[in-house]
Simulated assay, not measured.
Amino acid sequence: MSTLHIKNMVCNRCIVAVKSALEAYDLDITSINLGEVVLSKVLPNPQKVQLAKDLEELGFELIATKELQVVEKIKNAIVHLVHYQNNQLNVKLSEYLQNQLHQDYSALSNLFSQVEGITIEKYLIAQKIEKVKELLIYDELSLSEIAFQLRYSSVAYLSSQFKKVTGLTPSQFKKNGIYERKPLDKL
């Protein structure tokens, strides 16, 4: 077995795109998840080099070092938590990451800060704000419902954090009509 760690896989479409790229190599894929592909056998180095180029053209990147692999796993776990498991946002982030990565949270936190230049908590906030933007654009939920869904203690706290990150209040963002969202892999 061989595991490939791939940067910038943040959604189900990313999984489809990576799977499609891998199928061109006629590889036996055991499993594919955000940031990780398990192959039944080791990929020869010449094929790995070409695959890295093909993935790069699609906006992905093979991750070589263990540290970068762990950081990518942290990012993927947070993206999954915020964007795909809203009902679980009430879990304690440190416990969630320890359970997902089976490592001590303080070590994860230190590594993440060292590599990314921001804290895990700030990364979580950035992801939550992008989710708020998405929900505001859909215009299906009230701000109170969004605050509840994303487990903010109050609408005021959500609004305050939103303004701190974007420079706009949620209502200004909606009125503005220029919906500038960041791709999840660029946060």
Rank of each mutant, 00 (worst) to 15 (best):
L97M: 10
A147M: 05
E116A: 12
L136C: 15
K122I: 02
A156Q: 06
K122F: 00
S144L: 12
I146G: 07
E140A: 15
S113Y: 00
K128M: 14
A107E: 14
I146A: 10
D104K: 11
L108R: 00
Y138G: 04
Y96G: 11
E134W: 03
S106C: 08
S94K: 12
S94T: 08
S109V: 03
Y105W: 03
Q127G: 10
S109G: 07
L143G: 02
L101T: 10
Y138I: 04
T119L: 05
F112W: 01
S153I: 11
E145D: 14
S94C: 03
I137L: 13
T119Y: 00
H102W: 03
L97I: 11
L150T: 11
S154V: 05
V155C: 07
G117V: 04
H102Q: 13
I146M: 11
F112P: 02
Y152G: 03
D104E: 15
L150W: 11
L136G: 08
L141S: 01
K122H: 05
Q114A: 11
Y152W: 14
E116Y: 01
D104C: 07
L141H: 06
N99K: 14
I129C: 12
Y96T: 10
L101K: 08
S142H: 03
L124A: 09
Y105E: 09
Q103V: 04
D104Q: 14
L93F: 03
Q127P: 03
L97E: 05
L150N: 07
A107V: 08
G117M: 09
S113H: 01
E134G: 14
G117I: 05
A107T: 11
I118G: 00
E130D: 12
E116C: 12
A156R: 01
Y105M: 09
G117P: 05
G117K: 12
I118R: 01
F148H: 06
K131M: 14
L101E: 10
F112D: 09
K133P: 08
I118Y: 00
Y138M: 10
E116L: 01
E130C: 10
S113G: 13
S109Q: 13
Y152L: 07
E145R: 04
L97C: 08
V155T: 15
L93Q: 01
E145A: 15
